[in-house]
Amino acid sequence: MSSTEQGTSSAAPAEPTTAPESAAAPEVPESFYYVHGKDKVVHKVSAGALQHSALIHGMISNLGYTEEQAKANPFPFENIDGDILQMVVDWCNQHKGKPTPPEDTNLPKQKEKLFDLVLAVNYLEIKELLTYCCKQVAMMVKGKSPEEIREIWMIPTDAEDEAAEKEAKKRAGKEAAGETAAAAGDAK
């Protein structure tokens, strides 16, 4: 089920999932939502933690799901790897309702994982985490020469870029020619 379908599936007001623990000090029970990534592993996340993500917060703000409805309709993020989504969920839980510290040392140091995390965080619009991630990306090349940066970030040279562009054009031309030939064959 897509998130759009979920968004239009219910507009019912949120119902409490558990009874208040104390009658003297009634607390509004926390509502939970469910998300999964490419690996289909479902993560239960509180609405408070999800507030970090502008994208999800916008999706759930007027949803009013009951616990059961939320459980039955997890938000699918098929473009995010399971372990990356796990990292994002962990970060949101850790920083739920807290001011975000100026540094976050728990971010992955491996470049590919970090770049995947950057893409996920950018997609989910988690501003503070994106700032940390970008700082971490910048730290990867601190004090490095152009050649070292090219190696670490796998930046193609201008010549490689041009060759790839040429190749893509050639392929597109061939495909277009093939399509024209096929269309002419059909017409006959």
């Binding site: 790897d81 372990d83 491996q110 590919e112 770049f115 995947d116 950057v118 893409l119 796998m154 193609p156």
Partner: peptide
Amino acid sequence: PVYDTNWSDM
């Protein structure tokens, strides 16, 4: 998972 995301994918 196999990662192949890099700077150029940003």
